[in-house]
Structure formats: structure tokens, C-alpha cells
Simulated scan of single mutants.
Amino acid sequence: MNKTLTALSIAAVFMSAGQAQAAEIDVTITNATKNIYFTPLLVAAHSSDIFLFRSGQAAGSEIELMAEGGDIGPLSSLASNAGAVVVSDPAEGILNPGDSATTTMDTGDADSLTITAMLLPTNDGFVGLDSWPIPSTPGTYTVRLNGYDAGTEANDELVGSMPTPPFINFGTGGTGVETVVTNDTVHIHPGNLGDTDPAGGLSDISSTAYRWLNPVAVVTVTVK
């Protein structure tokens, strides 16, 4: 049995959710890494009874597409069609290290906030905020976000297995850090291993440039 909710079941939960917690919020996402990039972000306000991803459970195909290639279209459609308030790509493209993106949302009846974006360079890593409860009391709240592994692809760290944007300097000739998926559920990402051999070694990722540890982002939510 698929451990993630289908579009139909998500829609059913949204229709049954009756909480009245209309609020306007400002959401600012800051890339807190030294040299890791975020693909276009998805920000969704929704009922606390549903989730777009869940640690310890298998990723849906929409999360897989986002985490492996940065494609938020299917995930955005899934949430929007179910009644979520969705903002796609508030940074208008890649969110560079140290940069921030801000969006304003009228959350309607939604009481939870989810944020996702792929981490570059990784095989299937993504920054994630999983169904964070939106406070009802006006104020400014800060949340630090971890990087997750979607569990859908082995972390081989090879150039042929990852998106290769021109702003990332990949090596070649790596033999692969991993060859099989060792945990096929969403889990905390171990970070890139990398190496210092640009023409061989295990990885095609430079360990001096693209290693990272959690947390990878800071989110500030202002409830008005």
C-alpha cells in the first residue's frame, strides 16, 4: 500500500477540513548554506490533516520529480487541485547561497505550511518544511529547515545522475559513492561526501566546495 496520500485522498481531506483560521502571512526563505543552491521553491498552506511529504514514509512521484530534477509543477498541481494556497517559485528561479525570497499568502482556512525545493548538487536531496503549524497569534516566527533525502535514487554523486547547471563545477570519472538505495523512505540527508579528485575518486562533487550539514535554510513567518 502506498504510504503517501493520493491526489483524491488529499482532496477529500481538504474538503472535510473546517478550521477557520484565515490569516495573511509573509514567508521569507533564506538559503543558509555556503555553496548549495535551491531549485525553484514551492510554498503551500494547507490543512494539518494532509502532508506533501513525511519523514519515514515513501515519497510520492511528485516529490520524486522535485527532489531528483527540481520540477515542482506536478507537486504544485497536486496541492492546488486539492485546495491548498500555493506559491510557486517566489525566488523567480534558483535561490543562491545567502539569498532570500519572500512571498505574502492569504492562508484562508489553512493552518499548516509546507516548503520544498531540490538541493544542488545532490541526487535526490531537498530542503523541506513538513506541515508546520501556522501560529494563530500575530508575530514573527523563525524555523530552521533541514535537508532531506527523498529515498528515490542512490546517492552516487555522479555527474550523469544529477542536474548539471553551469554554475556548479562538477568533476568526472567518479566510480560512485553508493550504488543502491539504502533507505527508500524520506529521511534526513547525510550530506554530500565528495572528494578532492576532479578526474576520479568516488564522487564527481568537490568535497571542498559542496559539502554541507543541516540546517540548510532559515524561514521567517510573519503572521499579521
Rank of each mutant, 00 (worst) to 15 (best):
S61W: 09
D184S: 14
T104W: 00
V127W: 08
S206G: 11
L145I: 14
Y148N: 08
S55D: 12
L41E: 10
T175N: 08
T39M: 08
I205F: 08
T220K: 11
P138F: 01
E178F: 11
P165A: 08
F53R: 06
M162G: 09
S131R: 13
V159A: 00
P166T: 12
A20T: 12
I205C: 06
L42N: 05
T152D: 00
I50N: 07
D106I: 07
G191E: 01
T107E: 08
N2E: 15
S88W: 04
M105D: 01
A91Y: 13
V43M: 05
G171T: 02
V85T: 15
G174C: 10
L65Y: 08
S55Y: 03
V181S: 07
I25Y: 00
A17G: 09
M162Y: 07
P90S: 05
V223P: 04
N192D: 05
L8A: 15
P198E: 04
P40Y: 09
V221E: 01
K3N: 10
P135N: 07
N81E: 15
V180R: 06
M105S: 02
R144H: 01
F126W: 09
T185W: 02
V223E: 04
T102P: 06
A23V: 06
V87D: 09
S131L: 11
I205R: 03
S88H: 02
T196V: 15
Y141G: 00
L65C: 02
S203Q: 09
S88R: 14
V180K: 04
S77Y: 10
